[in-house]
């Protein structure tokens, strides 16, 4: 049976992981390679690295990091952040990335999804969508939720699927950081409207939230950052808990 995937998300700046990471036996919490290996060993099914570097050296630093990760890691990983053209994606593919995630670049230039899918296959293209509830509707937001677009979330996601997205990473900005649980209503609705895998993101605070999102929405994966980084939820415990609720996981 296809397992539900548990995906820790790591923020990367200048080739180093940022945000407090709290593993006791980690020699260097800023080393993406060591951290990734640690998560793989704990049983993470996949990793997402989000590059938040803003400098001109970004691309070069990122490629080096991706190569180091690919040399060590025996599970798939996705790279997101700052990918605006085919050449960016191709460099990451050749460095060993399994998937790339695009967000604002896709909103600004939807054809990019199509071009990437054609060049590298749909399995390589994750479209990340940040959504916020405003006046009774769900709207796509950019710049970490600061910039509202004129795209309705459900419409945009369907369009992304048609253009060749192989997977959707849907983050609820209303739930992100609240630790109050995933946005199950929206996730359920979106999940039922498309035929590609969807990763739930935003709001994970407890193991019960993961159980809830898989029971209520049939999404394919759940992503979280801080609850894993701070050791509030340990992946082996989480998988046991999900398994107890008859949710298929890889143990």
């Amino acid at each position: 049976m296809l397992s539900k995937r548990i995906i820790p998300c790591l923020d990367v700046k200048d080739g180093r992981t940022v945000k407090g990471v709290n593993f006791v036996d980690l020699r260097d919490a800023g080393d993406p390679v060591e951290l990734a290996a640690q998560y793989a060993q704990q049983g993470a099914d996949e990793l997402v690295f989000l590059d938040i570097t803003a400098t001109h050296e970004r691309r070069k630093t990122m490629i080096e990091m991706v190569k180091s990760v690919a040399r060590q890691l025996n599970i798939p990983f996705t790279i997101g952040g700052g990918i605006t053209e085919i050449a960016d994606a191709e460099a990451l593919l050749n460095a060993g990335a399994d998937k790339i995630s695009i967000n604002s670049a896709a909103v600004r230039n939807p054809k990019l999804i199509e071009e990437l899918a054609k060049a590298f296959g749909v399995q390589f293209v994750v479209v990340a969508v940040d959504t916020k509830h405003v006046d009774g509707k769900n709207w796509v937001h950019l710049n970490g939720g600061r910039l509202m677009t004129e795209l309705q979330t459900e419409t945009w996601i369907k369009q992304a699927e048609q253009l060749g997205a192989g997977e959707i990473l849907l983050t609820s900005m209303d739930h992100d950081g609240t630790k109050a649980g995933f946005d199950c209503n929206l996730l359920k609705k979106v999940n039922e409207s498309i035929n590609i895998p969807i990763i739930a993101s935003g709001g994970a605070g407890s193991m019960a939230h993961f159980t809830e999102v898989f029971q209520k929405t049939n999404v394919d994966a759940a992503l979280a950052a801080s609850v894993f980084h701070y050791g509030e939820i340990l992946i082996p415990d989480l998988k046991q808990e999900l398994s107890r609720h008859q949710i298929p996981v890889r143990i």
């Binding site: 296809l2 995937r5 192989g166 035929n195 895998p197 394919d220 994966a221 890889r250």
Partner: peptide
């Protein structure tokens, strides 16, 4: 076959 109610691609860990 989409008609089987599955998502395509088949992506992830399977037994």
């Amino acid at each position: 076959d989409k008609a089987l109610g599955i998502k395509i691609p088949h992506m992830g860990w399977n037994n």
